[in-house]
Design a protein around this nucleic acid. Structure first.
Length: 579
DNA sequence: GCCGTTTTCGGCCCGACTGTTTTCAGTCG
C-alpha cells in the first residue's frame, strides 16, 4: 500500500472523528500522522513490516496499530465503526468552505443531510437558515460554493509554482515601484519554493496603505478587488489566482514576514518552543507571557534570535526538524543557484527540443554555466523524434567539433537520455554509449508495471557500467500524474553502492526527485545532480526549481555533484572510474 | 492521540474573520 493511500485514509479518519465530536487534539493527532505518512520518503508498509512505525514523528502505539490494520486488511476498524454511525459521504460536506465538522454534523442530525447532493437540496428548500446559529448568509454561501466546488480528490485550487512565481514577482515589482510603498516581499509557500501554491502572499510597508491597495487593484494582472483597506487588500487575477497583500508598519515587518512565510507547521513548532520558554509569538511581535513589552523586529532574523535560534532559510520552514537542527547549530549551508557549474540534461531539435545545439550552448554560457550536456532522447523514444544509433554517432562528432572552437571556459558534453526498457535494458549498443561523455537513463514507457518490477527495472540501469545518472526517478507530473510505484530507498542504496548519480529534475512539472527522496538519497550517499531537462533556451531557467528542491531537501553544495568544475566532475562519473 | 530542559499526566500556537449573536462558536490560515 502506498504512503499516499495511507495518508488519505488517516485524513478521512480524522474527519470522521471530528464529525463524531472527538477531542480536537485527537483529531489533530490523526491529521499530523497523515502529514507524516504523506511526507515519508520510505514506505510505511516496509516500516510496518519491521515494527518501526512508531519511529515516525506523530505516530505512537495507537496510530501504529491502526496503520498496521490498514495495510493488512485494507481498512481501519475504528473508521468502519464510525462509517456505520453516519454516512462517510458526510466528509464531503466539510469540503464546502465555511462548513466544518461541527456544522456538517448538525446538518446531518437536524436536516438529514448525508452528502453534497442532499446539502444542496436543503439549501434550495431554505431549511438551513431555519437552524439556530445558522442564517441566510450560510445558506447563500452553500449554494454559491456548490457551484464551484472541485471534484473530490481534485486539487484544483493548487497551482504549479511556475504559474504562481511570475505573478508574484510582477506584482511585487509593480508595488515596489509605487511611490507609497516601502519594502515589498513575496511570502507564503512561494517564498518557501513549494512545488504547488494556493495563492500569492505579499507583505509590504507603505506610507499610504490605501494607495498601495489601489495600486494592486489597478494592476493589469488583477481582474477584481475583493477587499481593501489599511491592513492590505485581497484580489483575484484574471487567471483566478488569489492575491493577498498585507501592509504593516516598518517596525514589525520582520514579525509579519515570518508569520506569513509559514509554513503552518513551522510556526506551530516555533510557537510551542517559545511558549516553553515563557514567550508568546504572533505576527505582531514576541512578548513575555503576562508581560506588557512586545518585541518587534524589522527583520525576520530578530524573531529567531530572540528565541535563541539562528536564521532559518524559508525553504527549510516545513516543521521537519529544522528548529531542532537550528538549536543544535546543525543547519546545512544550502546550495545556491550560483554554485551550479553545469547542466547535465537538455534537449535539442534532434529529438523534441525547440533549439539547436549552438543556441542551447550559447544560452547556457550566458547563464554562467561552464558545461552543458546535450541529452536528446534515444532510439526507442517514438513520437517521430527518436535518435537512431547512427545519428547519435554523428552527433558525437558534431559536439566534438563544437568544442574545438568553443569559447574559453565552456564545453558541451555529448550525451543521451536513454530509455530504460521494461526488462531494464537500454536501447543503444554499449559501444555507442561508451563513446558518450554522459548518459542519463530514464523510464518513459510502461508506467503501470508493479512496484517490484519497476524497482528491478531501474536497478538494472543503475548497475549498468555506462549509465552515469538516473533521470526523473518517479515519473510523476505534479497535479497531473501520480508517481509510479518504485522503492526509492532501495534505489538510493544501489545508486550509492554503484556510484550512479541521481538527478533532481528541475522541470517545474516534475521536481523529481522530490525533496523527501532527494534528502533520503543524499543521506544514503548518492551523488545528486541538479538538472533542467530544458527543451528550449528559456527552460534552462528551470535550474532555479531544481535548486529549490535541493534546498528543500537540506542539500549543501558539496552534496550536489555539478557544483564542481568539469575537471573535478568528470572523474566522478562511473565511466571515468571503470576505464 | 502524542509527547517530555517545568510534565509519564496534562498540556497541546495565535489571531482574524464571519455570521450570528449581544459575548461567542466555528472556521481558516
Amino acid at each position: 500500500m502506498r504512503n499516499a493511500e495511507i495518508a488519505a485514509a488517516l485524513r478521512e479518519l480524522s474527519v470522521l472523528y471530528e464529525l463524531d465530536g472527538a477531542d480536537r487534539y485527537r483529531v489533530l493527532a490523526y491529521k499530523e500522522a497523515a502529514r507524516t505518512a504523506q511526507d515519508s520518503p520510505v514506505s510505511l508498509e516496509q516500516l510496518a513490516s519491521e515494527g518501526r512505525l512508531t519511529e515516525l514523528p506523530a505516530v505512537g502505539k495507537t496510530l501504529a496499530e491502526k496503520i498496521e490494520a490498514l495495510i493488512e486488511t485494507g481498512s481501519i476498524p475504528a473508521a468502519e465503526k464510525l462509517k456505520a454511525k453516519f454516512p462517510p459521504t458526510l466528509v464531503d460536506v466539510t469540503r464546502v468552505p465555511g462548513l466544518g465538522a461541527k456544522t456538517a454534523r448538525r446538518l446531518f442530525d437536524e436536516l438529514g443531510v448525508t452528502d453534497l447532493g442532499s446539502l444542496g437540496e436543503a439549501a434550495e428548500a431554505g431549511r438551513i437558515k431555519e437552524l439556530k446559529g445558522l442564517g441566510p448568509k450560510v445558506e447563500e454561501n452553500v449554494l454559491a460554493s456548490l457551484e464551484t466546488l472541485p471534484e473530490p480528490g481534485e486539487d484544483s485550487d493548487r497551482r504549479l509554482l511556475s504559474k504562481i512565481l511570475p505573478i508574484a514577482r510582477e506584482l511585487a515589482e509593480a508595488l515596489a515601484a509605487h511611490p507609497a510603498s516601502g519594502r515589498v516581499e513575496i511570502a507564503g509557500s512561494a517564498r518557501r519554493w513549494s512545488e504547488t501554491c494556493k495563492d500569492v502572499d505579499l507583505v509590504a510597508t507603505a506610507s499610504d496603505a490605501r494607495a498601495l491597495a489601489e495600486a494592486l487593484a489597478e494592476n493589469q494582472l488583477i481582474a477584481e478587488e475583493r477587499a481593501g483597506g489599511e491592513a492590505g487588500a485581497q484580489a483575484l487575477t484574471h487567471t483566478g489566482v488569489k492575491v493577498d497583500l498585507r501592509v504593516v508598519p516598518e517596525k514589525n515587518f520582520g514579525n509579519l514576514l515570518q508569520h506569513f512565510t509559514g509554513s503552518a507547521g513551522h510556526n506551530v513548532q516555533l510557537r510551542e518552543r517559545a511558549l516553553a520558554r515563557g514567550l508568546s509569538v504572533s505576527e505582531h511581535g514576541v512578548s513575555k507571557l503576562g508581560g506588557k513589552r512586545v518585541h518587534r523586529f524589522t527583520e525576520e532574523a530578530g524573531v529567531y534570535e530572540l528565541l535563541g535560534l539562528p536564521y532559518i532559510e524559508p525553504e527549510l520552514r516545513e516543521g521537519r526538524g529544522e528548529i531542532e537542527a537550528a538549536e543544535a547549530g546543525e543547519l546545512p549551508e544550502l546550495l545556491r543557484l550560483s554554485d551550479v557549474r553545469g547542466d547535465l540534461h537538455s534537449h535539442t531539435t534532434l529529438s523534441d527540443g525547440r533549439n539547436s545545439v549552438e543556441e542551447m550552448a550559447e544560452a547556457a554560457r550566458r547563464r554562467g554555466l561552464a558545461y552543458l550536456a546535450i541529452t536528446d532522447h534515444s532510439a526507442s523514444h517514438g513520437f517521430g523524434d527518436h535518435v537512431t544509433a547512427k545519428r547519435l554517432a554523428q552527433r558525437i562528432k558534431e559536439i566534438s567539433a563544437f568544442n574545438e572552437s568553443a569559447p574559453r571556459g565552456f564545453r558541451l558534453l555529448a550525451g543521451s537520455e536513454v530509455n530504460i526498457g521494461t526488462d531494464g535494458s537500454l536501447d543503444y549498443p554499449d559501444e555507442l554509449l561508451a563513446g558518450l561523455d554522459w548518459v542519463i537513463a530514464s523510464v518513459h514507457t510502461s508506467f503501470a508495471i508493479s512496484e517490484r518490477e519497476m524497482t528491478e527495472r531501474v536497478l538494472a540501469a543503475i548497475e549498468h557500467p555506462l549509465v552515469d545518472c538516473i533521470g526523473h526517478l518517479t515519473g510523476r507530473l505534479l497535479l497531473r500524474r501520480e508517481p509510479y510505484g518504485i522503492d526509492v530507498a532501495r534505489v538510493a542504496e544501489a545508486a550509492a553502492a554503484n556510484g550512479t548519480m541521481v538527478e533532481i529534475n528541475g522541470n517545474p512539472n516534475r521536481r523529481d526527485l522530490n525533496e523527501h527522496h532527494a534528502k533520503l538519497a543524499a543521506e544514503a550517499g548518492v551523488r545528486i545532480v541538479v538538472n533542467t531537462d530544458a527543451h528550449g533556451v528559456e527552460t534552462l531557467d528551470n535550474m532555479q526549481y531544481a535548486v529549490a528542491t535541493a534546498r528543500r531537501a537540506w542539500l549543501s553544495a558539496d552534496q550536489v555533484a555539478n557544483t564542481r568544475a568539469w575537471r573535478s566532475f568528470a572523474p566522478l562519473r562511473k565511466r571515468a572510474k571503470k576505464s
